[in-house]
Design a protein around this nucleic acid. Structure first.
Length: 289
DNA sequence: AGGGATCCCTGTACGC
DNA sequence: TGCGTACAGGGATCCC
């Protein structure tokens, strides 16, 4: 389940790979990836990358933006979303295609880039940078966790009337970009707040903790190369190391990393939710401070 | 308009 | 052993 730290790890891996040679050939599977207006119609356009040279790799939320310089002038940008099971890999030489390879870029230096996604929840799109940034899904994303627009005050202002559970607000990419189910549970755990509590009950001091722990949790996960519970792999095919540092996610019944009480879990909005009933007790009063 | 429900998709885990 | 089934979940879409 690639979230911001995993996508950032892929971004850094791609940048480190130092691909500079032009794309000799674009190979596409006949499967549709993510369907819908934003994706399927535009998959054909990856052929545009033929003859282009890879340049900078950026990230916005859970999306990768990989720029390719055109032979004449200008550039195309490849937008990549890993969905649930998407993997990006760079192979040093000829490598057989893995099952469910949806895109292979063959570079003139002999290396290949593969996008593999068995569950096909991921998506690809190729367009100009400005076309991508001014349309869905990028245009709808909320602030990056490290941007000045993401603040405790902004969280409070946006959510103080919302009756949604805190966990569900953190999953909303319009509130802040990049958080998925794993880090939503972990952020609530580190902030010491019951993830089921309605946003409207959080006072500014509680939002300050949510804000601070969001940044810390994601930053620490990036420094550990992301979380591999099942599918996630980095550009070299290796696993992340953050799974060992999780406090609550996937640890139902096991001792909380902080107080050793057994971790609780339930399904909320169709998604697994984990918390420590002792460190994240439901407030008895009206407010979470 | 906010937010809940449903669907997409396949590998894995588990029960009988 | 083998088969069937439940489950995992990000985001688009529909709907109230």
């Amino acid at each position: 389940m690639p979230e911001l730290p995993e996508v950032e790890s892929v971004r850094r891996g791609l940048a480190r790979a130092g691909l500079e040679a032009a794309v000799a050939k674009v190979e596409r599977s006949s499967f549709a990836l993510r369907t819908g207006a934003h994706w399927a119609k535009r998959l054909e356009r990856v052929r545009r990358l033929q003859g282009c040279r890879p340049a900078s790799v950026d990230r916005r939320g859970k999306y990768l933006l990989w720029e390719f310089l055109r032979p004449g002038e200008g550039s195309w940008t490849l937008l990549v979303h890993l969905g649930m099971s998407g993997r990006c890999t760079v192979h040093p030489a000829e490598t057989p295609k893995a099952a469910h390879t949806h895109l292979r870029l063959r570079f003139e230096d002999g290396r290949v880039f593969d996008f593999v996604d068995p569950r096909r929840f991921g998506g690809l799109r190729c367009d100009t940078r400005s076309a991508l940034e001014t349309s869905a899904p990028l245009a709808e994303l909320g602030p990056e966790p490290w941007s000045p627009e993401f603040s405790a005050e902004a969280l409070h202002a946006r959510l103080h009337r919302s009756r949604r559970a805190l966990r569900d607000a953190l999953l909303d990419q319009r509130v802040v970009a990049g958080i998925g189910n794993i880090y939503a549970s972990e952020i609530c755990a580190r902030a010491g707040i019951d993830p089921r509590v309605a946003c409207s009950r959080l006072r500014p001091s509680a939002w300050a903790r949510v804000h601070g722990e969001t940044r810390r949790c994601l930053r620490d996960a990036i420094s550990r190369g992301g979380t591999t519970l099942r599918d996630y792999r980095n550009i070299e095919g290796g696993r992340g190391r953050n799974q060992r540092a999780l406090w609550v996610y996937g640890r139902s019944g096991q001792p909380c990393a902080r107080c050793e009480s057994p971790v609780s879990s339930e399904i909320l909005q169709g998604r697994a939710l984990f918390w420590c009933p002792s460190c994240q007790a439901r407030p008895r009063g009206r407010w979470v401070v």
